[in-house]
Each structure stands twice: as C-alpha cells, then as structure tokens.
C-alpha cells in the first residue's frame, strides 16, 4: 500500500501542471487555443459553430491528452527506474496502472474545466454542455489509457517514436471519438454509455498491454 502511495505521489509530482519539475500547462493551453481559434476559422455562423463545436472540443481533448506522451514513460525507463522497480518485485502492470491514473489526473479534470469556456466560445450551452461534460468524464479515462499504451509501445524507440505514436493513435482513438462526439448529435445517452464502455475496456487493457510492452523493450 505504501508502495502504491509512493509511486502515485511521484507520478503526480512529475505530471501535474504547475508542480516543480512537473508537467506543463501546454496541453491545457493548447486545448483552449483550439477552441478560441476555431470560430475565427469557421466564421461567425452560430448554427454551424454549435453543430460542429462539440466535435472540435473532442479532437482538442484527444490532442491535449497525447501532448505529454513523450515523457510519460520513456524518461523513467532510460533512467533505470523500471529496472529498479522490477528488482523490488513491483510489477510493470501496477506501474503502468498508476501512471495511467496520474496521467488522467494531470489532464482529465483540467480539460473538463476548460471545456466550460471552450463550449461558450463555440456556442454550446444547456443540455448540450451537459452532454459534452459527461462525455468527457466518460471518455478522458479512455484517452489516458490510449496514452499509456502508445507511450509503452514506443518506449524503446529513442526519439523516433513520434511518427509511430501518431499512427497508433488513429485506430485506437476512432471508437472513442465516434461515440463521444456522436453523443452530441445522434448518440445521446446511448452514445455516452458506449463511450464509457469503450473507455472502461481501454482502461482494463492498458496495464497489461503496457506492462508487456515495457518488458519486451528490455530485451531490445
């Protein structure tokens, strides 16, 4: 138990925005910048903005979730942390699960907060805002899971992982975006439920996929 607390504390200190030596505010600012610039690109048509704004918020959330991927795991593997944890009998699955929780905490709640001004900028309010927020609550854990899966698969590719990350992201993220953003137009409550289901599935798979990938990277 104390091991778990120590790991989570360290991960949060490294990932949470504003912590010393920790993560940056860049993903959050990036998310807000997209929502701010989108109306300028589309033009001042309220109907069009409200109809497409939800999808843009989802894409912006996805991109904000993968911005910190390059330092999510690779730096700890290079610095020998994972080897030291392995010698102490801490399983890679547990480490990846803790990292996934910390990663979600470092962007999920902030994105949900930032979605309030972002929704106002693209003219989403009322029930639709509620659907956006619930969708993000259901979907961002899945985005965090996709993040740690991609980070662990590309962990051994020193510097060359960015291109592969992008390619891996597309198929993994499609279901979340289809149902998450779809809940705003045609999906409704069912869309939210499916977003949550896919999210849970990804969260359940991620520790095992990530743990296996990190162990495989040792052999390289």
């Amino acid at each position: 138990m104390s091991t778990l607390a120590a790991l989570l504390r360290r991960d949060l200190a490294r990932l949470l925005p504003g912590m010393r030596g920790g993560g940056s505010l860049l993903p959050l600012l990036f998310f807000l910048a997209v929502a701010m610039l989108y109306p300028f690109a589309i033009g001042p048509n309220p109907t069009l903005l409200a109809a497409t704004g939800g999808g843009v918020i989802w894409v912006a959330a996805l991109l904000a979730a993968i911005l910190p991927l390059d330092r999510l795991l690779a730096s700890d593997v290079e610095a020998g942390f994972f080897d030291q944890w392995a010698l102490r009998g801490v399983s890679e699955e547990l480490l990846v699960a803790v990292r996934m929780v910390a990663h979600w905490l470092s962007f999920g709640p902030f994105i949900m907060l930032a979605a309030l001004p972002a929704s106002a900028l693209v003219g989403i309010d009322g029930d639709k805002l509620r659907t956006v927020e619930l969708g993000l609550l259901a979907g961002t854990p899945g985005l965090a899971a996709i993040g740690v899966i991609i980070a662990s698969v590309t962990v051994a590719l020193k510097g060359g992982g960015a291109a592969l990350s992008g390619l891996l992201l597309i198929p993994l993220a499609v279901p979340l975006l289809v149902f998450g953003a779809g809940s705003l137009s045609t999906g409704g409550e069912g869309g939210l439920a499916l977003t949550g289901a896919i999210s849970l599935l990804l969260v359940a798979i991620a520790p095992f996929a990530g743990g296996a990938a990190i162990r495989a990277a040792r052999e390289g």
């Binding site: 290079e78 080897d83 010698l87 102490r88 801490v90």
Partner: peptide, 27 residues
C-alpha cells in the same frame, strides 16, 4: 532479493538529491 547498481542511478534529475533518495526510502 537482488540490488542492481549500474550506470543509471534511477534518481529524478530535477529533484534535490535528498528528495530523490527519499522516494526510494519510501519503497
């Protein structure tokens, strides 16, 4: 149990040495 000492110290680069070692002390 085996302890390993190699060229990688497994300490957080940006942390003060005391805090970086404290992390391992918790484990």
């Amino acid at each position: 149990m085996a302890g390993l000492l190699d060229e990688r110290p497994a300490l957080d680069e940006h942390q003060p040495l005391g805090a970086a070692l404290d992390f391992w002390h918790r484990l």
